[in-house]
Nucleic acid binder design. Structure first.
Lengths: 209, 209, 209, 209
DNA sequence: AATGAATGAGCGTTCATTCAT
DNA sequence: CATGAATGAACGCTCATTCAT
């Protein structure tokens, strides 16, 4: 059963997420979070039980939101052609990772502690895998795709490449025209998306006509 | 000029690397490291000056080793055909990441502190970019490759996908036949390598004959 | 503007002062102070920020108190005759040094660190110098004193002699009749005061009639 | 029985004395001393047994030297008139304190630990007390002095005033014409000596004619 | 006779958490 | 419901000292 969060709790989770993504879980003290959030140091234990539980709730909360979001998204593309669906999925995943990079930045790094929680991420990834599987199969059946790469590998390429770009900004920005804080993210996102589109459509043996 | 390390220092760095990769820099105490290494708590300050300097040395040491290793590798493939070279590069990078995943697991996460050090990593990545660029251009010139994807994007796909697999074992192991501790790594490495080969050769428009 | 201290802070400062006067700043650990005060080791950082800042506050606090105290004292003698005033000043300074010897015991020894703080002590000493100057000049003008020794030298003799007695108890107690813990201080104070009265009135060429 | 010191030990003691006088006993680490002396960190334990014992030896050594020195001095004045002797004693004590202020600067501050050692200082002070007593009595007998102040009080005034000046340089230098590092000490010494001469001859009721 | 590697204890400080209000 | 004072444990580090050579 999942926890319902109050507005204040959500606010704290947002602050915590940002700091933790920047500084790491251990590198972010409860005092940091509370100070930035303008609340009492005792509040995190008070609201969430402990720092670690807060982390768990933060995780839960973001997964929940992302699931809901993905459902909505899946709906919007359900009637499209496979190649369009694939293109939209790539765009969606890349976009979400860039938008919530705070979250995804720590999700695989900081959750060393809570194994239970990892299963939720698993379920979540499998949502994507299943969706990709559908699209690939449908495309192959309709003849628009030639090959059938494993959906988990396609997902791996999408998420892996995007996270690498996000986490290695000082590397990737050398190849991105605009480097100022505001536009970099947009340019980088575009570049990695283009790369993934080419790469994945190539491996699918997409026969554009 | 770079520091030379004694055997004992290297031993400590190895222990530290493993723990830090698992638990993060802040999550790994000096006491943890010394306890696991069977040495006195004072030794890290004694040998390296401080925990942070140790981190820097660890980084330096591993980059140094990897550079040397890459030079040797580059030599062994310098006379091959482009498609063979590309295949070997992919195999090499994936293999190195799996072998030294301890190191690469934290390299982009834990080095928030030392900007100077990031530049070394940058130089290092650019070694790969240049090599990939050479190979792609040569392949296109000789007609074996049809397209010219950006080398930085190819590198991004290779490293990103591999790290994702390494860091999300509990996801990827669902699609890997053997899951026991010993053989998993080997199987996962093979799977991700195959995926990358297909993916990158597809995007290169490789015309096998 | 100066910091206001809570009762608990003042209590800790008192404990710290006593220990530091006995054992020196470096020789007194935070654990010593907290243990004697019956509080947690974290409290000194908690209340004062750090051990060093605590030292600074301790100094500030005592100077403040002593200044206030001196103002009151100066008022009580302002209408007396110069010889009476001089006598009272000597009595007052000696008395204060004996009473707050903990503080004066370290004031010139332990404040190697904080130059800023030394200026406050300087101002403080100059208060005495000015007052002594007034009294001497008035006494000479009225004919009750014959000579005009420098006020800074008079102060030097008063404070120097008294501190020497306080700090070299095992020397001075040989010449003091009662040596038990309770009465020694009183006897020693009386003896040094008598010596200073004789000495300073002699140098002033005091013509008693 | 007293220890005999080798040249190297004396050298180390000299270095230690200077540092300890500046920074205090606790504020001076064995590493500081050894580093400044250009010797191995283990040497202090090796030569003296421990840091604390070294301190004790340092003390012993300086007292020994000062005793010998005083004997020589006492000889040179033994045939003079009491007023000349008194003048020379004051000059001698003040001079010694200024010359060996390193030593005297910590003698009453840092020897909190070693009670045994304090007795030696006691003996030493009593040498002065006896000498002063002789001179005073002789002067009174010969009619050149009128009063008989206690010799321990005279000594207290001499040592106390001088040490105060040495330890509170930033106070006293306000009243000293030359303040540069080289000449300050000389000027301050002269000023405090003049003050003591006036003060003590006044209290002795010295009838110059 | 002297070294330098290594130790264990203790340092000042910060941590997440608790508790009385 | 929320606070802020207070806690004990752990942190990275430096200390005087020891020990094998």
């Amino acid at each position: 059963m999942r926890k319902k969060f109050t507005e204040k709790q959500i606010y704290i989770l947002d602050v915590a997420e940002e700091l933790i993504a920047k500084q790491g879980y251990e590198g972010t003290s409860v005092r940091d979070i509370c100070s930035k959030a303008g609340i009492n140091v005792a509040m995190i234990s008070y609201y969430f039980g402990s720092k670690e539980k807060m982390m768990s709730y933060l995780y839960q909360y973001r997964v929940l939101k992302t699931r809901e979001n993905f459902s909505e998204f899946a709906d919007t593309i359900k009637d499209g052609k496979p190649e369009m669906q694939m293109k939209e999925i790539i765009k969606y995943i890349v976009g979400q990772l860039f938008k919530y990079n705070y979250f995804h930045g720590f999700v695989t790094q900081e959750l060393r502690h809570t194994d239970s929680v990892k299963n939720e991420l698993l379920d979540f990834y499998q949502l994507f895998v299943r969706k990709l599987d559908d699209v690939i199969k449908k495309g192959v059946a309709s003849g628009v795709f030639t090959f059938t790469p494993k959906p988990e590998d396609v997902l791996t390429t999408i998420i892996g490449s995007t996270l690498f770009v996000i986490r290695n900004r000082n590397f990737y920005e050398m190849y991105v025209p605009n480097k100022d804080e505001e536009t970099y993210a947009k340019e980088a996102e575009k570049k990695v998306r283009m790369n993934l589109l080419l790469s994945i459509f190539a491996i699918l043996g997409y026969a554009a006509d």
